[in-house]
Amino acid sequence: MPAYCNYQIYSEIRFRPLLFREWDVMRGETMMRKDIIEIRWHGRGGQGAITAAKIVANAAFASGYSGVVMAPTFGTERRGAPVLTSLKISKQKIYDLSPITQPDMVIVLDHLLVKEADVTNGLKPGGLVIINTPKPPGEYRFKVKGIKIATADVTKIASEVGLPQGIINTGIIGIFAKATGLIDIELLITEIENEFKGKKPKRNGKAARVTFARTLVGGN
């Protein structure tokens, strides 16, 4: 079979030692625009990370961040598999739509993902990790030092306020509001209720409000 086709069976041809030429030498160089806050969301397909990011995007825009870009991982998505969503916010227009590599904060919708995925990959020093988990922040240890950790048991709170099992993408926004102080919780709740018009808007809003009150913040 010819070597110019993409047959996976050609492992001996395709996977000879790779010579990463000139451009990859640049990998370590950081060139972030300092006005952009970069938030990476880790969830599972079907958990609603994109909807949650969209709600925060709308609230950010309404509170004066005129530059808002939300990008799901490009490609195919499977229910239950780990997925990523990027959210960048700034007071100025954002031109670079490429995926986030050095987030200011990461939001983890499912605490089991902490073991499955490298959630703190590229996290900036002094960055923030938000986790939906029954555990307090002190029980988490990450390789990256000098970071803040914020947690709440969003899954439990969701069932307390009468949401169906596993609906956690609104409660998680409560941790975000409490731990970052970037956007007013009332504005976020308004956006949640707008997004879930006809789909239990009040309970979804309440999930965020209760989570906001029960968020624990610690360090690492």
């Binding site: 969209k54 870009v69 939300m70 490609g75």
Partner: peptide, 10 residues
């Protein structure tokens, strides 16, 4: 495709 088609912005 994707870069604009699937990205959200105002």
């Amino acid at each position: 495709g994707y870069i604009l088609s699937h990205t959200y912005m105002p």
